[in-house]
């Protein structure tokens, strides 16, 4: 930069403001905006479906209670992680996650593959009194969930808002939602959500990946469907 150019920027605030904004936008456009239009950012998995009304309510409770402050939802493609939690996470598994709930800190274990690991009754007992199952756990108790009935009044507007951002709920699904929540508690919703986490990929297809000595972060073909080959 020549002495003159520096002088212009030092003397003319309007030019400084414009140039600074442009400089801020370069990296932002390349790393945050362009990926939306890039193939490979998110690999489609045909078995991944939107959350049911009950699962969605559970997810909203998970967000309300800030579970993401202590639990992550991404299994890294590292040997110990795959051993501990299961198959590493794939981009396509989060296609309907508004917002993502990957978290950034594991004060508790990762939950990306928690679905189906324990029976429903284990989760109910664990959330009611965590230390009755894991003696030295530091998780807060969420006993109130079992006695708090779900409020079905917002579910239609919630599913409607999600449809606006791209989740393919049908009119029928939205209309039927309040009925599906009738008589359910917050605990029912939480358990439904936890039990579906990480279960939407084809488990048989990933077994082979787990067995291989080195885990590669490449999605196996058996998990991937292009729009042409997609079933249903």
């Amino acid at each position: 930069m020549s002495e003159n150019q520096v002088n212009v920027l030092e003397r003319k605030p309007v030019i400084l403001i414009i140039v600074t904004l442009l400089v801020i936008l370069i990296g932002s456009v390349v790393t945050a905006l362009l990926p939306f239009f890039m193939e490979g950012m998110e690999v489609k998995i045909s078995t991944v479906r939107p959350y049911t009304a009950l699962e969605l309510e559970g997810r909203d409770i998970y967000m309300r209670e800030g579970c993401n402050n202590c639990h992550t939802q991404t299994v890294r493609p590292l040997r110990d992680e795959v051993l501990r939690y299961g198959e590493f996470s794939k981009s396509g598994e989060f296609a309907y996650d508004h917002p993502f709930l990957w978290g950034s800190k594991r004060t508790g274990p990762d939950l990306a593959r928690i679905g189906g690991k324990y029976p429903d009754s284990w989760h109910v007992q664990h959330m009611t009194d965590p230390r009755s199952l894991v003696k030295e756990s530091n998780m807060p108790a969420y006993a109130f969930m079992a006695t708090t009935p779900l409020d079905p009044s917002n579910i239609k507007s919630k599913m409607g808002a999600l449809r606006t951002v791209g989740v393919p709920y049908t009119d029928e699904e939205i209309a039927a939602a309040p009925e599906l929540l009738a008589g359910k508690t917050e605990m029912d919703a939480m358990v439904a959500y936890l039990q579906v986490l990480g279960t939407m990929i084809n488990k048989a297809a990933v077994e082979t990946v787990v067995d291989s000595a080195t885990v590669s972060p490449v999605v196996p073909d058996s998990l991937v469907t292009t729009p042409e080959t997609e079933v249903k």
Binding site: M41, F94, A95, Y96, D97, F100, N154, K158, V165, V167
Partner: peptide, 16 residues
């Protein structure tokens, strides 16, 4: 979706 509930415009990997 209501006065104190909204859903991110972005999903999954892009949202992250």
């Amino acid at each position: 979706a209501s006065l104190f509930k909204s859903y991110s415009l972005y999903a999954g990997v892009n949202d992250a």
